[in-house]
Simulated scan of single mutants.
Amino acid sequence: MRYKLLLFISALLFPLLLGGCNFKDIDKRIFVISMGIDKLDDQKNNLRVSLKLAIPQGNPKEGTEQFDIIVEETKTVADAVRKAKSKVDKELDFGHMKVFLIGENMAHDDIYQIINWGVRRRDIQLITLLAIAKPTALDVQKVKPESERIPSNALILGLSKSGTESPYIVTEYLFDYQRRLEERGLDPILPIVKAEGDHFRIDQLALMKKHRIGIELSPNETKLYNLLTTKNLKTNLSGKMEENLYELNLESSRASYKINARPGEEPVLAYEIHIKATLEENESHENMTRPVLDTIEDATEKEINGQVERFLKRLQKHETDPIGFGLHYMSRRWDNVSEWEDWQKIYPRLTFKVSTHVRIHSAGTAH
């Protein structure tokens, strides 16, 4: 009898307990899938916050995707979210937010306030994808590709590379960006998403000087960054030999480096790049014999050496370190008091030496 009485009392108290912890049933919540923040010229309300809300459908395969975008202009992100709640009939849920877009104007100014807000919110996942949006975050939010069946899914698949595997896309998460902000010897990076009609274009990388854009890499420089930081990058390499163009398809790749900064010697950063590839396209009419492939290998090695050296010198010129050379240097030193100051003196004097080894193991199938 006492056991049944306890069960009865527990059943009565359970709704009260849920109400006390602000629990909302799923039918009383609406999910924010992506969020965008733009900087405005208005002195009073200088932030425009756009929230993309997913409207649930019976079957996403039917292609009846529906979403709503709530836009608020205020001084702070937190205030914009509070005001947005007055425009919907359900509780805003950020637990499924996968993409955080920062407008180009905001990225050129200062994004510390935005990152700080995102990290502090306990309901925003630290694996949220970060990107710079061109021309504005709201423009990118409005893009709906024909292939998309779930709101913002095309952007999520692209930025995370869980769908397409492009050598021009660099994935950056909220937790990693926060780490790069606070870490010495490793500068932040953000991919750039451009709205082009009904499609996205993600083929550039922005190197941040802590809280704002430092330089924007070209698509080819973005590919070089991926080649230096990603093992077995799936991409192509272009080249020219005797006025004939050719394309190599990478089967495997790896890159490593060493920093020689002994006292009394000029500091040198030596890169080793190893590539295995197949010949995918060729303008020449001659048979691809082993001696011909060897010649293409030599030409490709020289081309990559030159491109990577120019890329590293550009990073050095702009005093940015997205690969983490400084962190690598300090991790191998014991003088914790002066190692950072030592690196700041060494980096501008670094000489780069790149050695690439290309092996074409197949010329494809010719008929």
Rank of each mutant, 00 (worst) to 15 (best):
E283Y: 08
E303R: 12
N260Q: 14
T229A: 05
E247V: 14
L237Y: 02
P267G: 03
H285C: 00
A255N: 10
K258P: 00
N232A: 11
P263H: 05
L233A: 07
N260K: 14
S218M: 09
E301W: 00
I213G: 02
A299W: 04
Y246P: 03
H274Q: 07
N287D: 11
N244P: 04
P267N: 10
S252C: 04
P291E: 08
T229F: 05
L207A: 01
K234S: 15
K223C: 05
A277T: 00
T235H: 09
P291F: 01
E265T: 08
N249G: 15
E265L: 10
Y246N: 01
L227W: 00
S256E: 14
T229D: 04
H285A: 08
T230S: 09
L228S: 04
K210P: 12
N260M: 14
A255D: 00
K276H: 10
G264I: 00
L205I: 00
M208W: 01
E216F: 01
R290D: 07
M208E: 08
K210H: 14
H211N: 15
I215G: 08
N282Q: 02
N244A: 06
L250F: 04
A270M: 11
V292G: 02
I213F: 03
T278K: 07
E280I: 01
E280S: 15
E280T: 01
E297G: 02
T229P: 03
E301H: 06
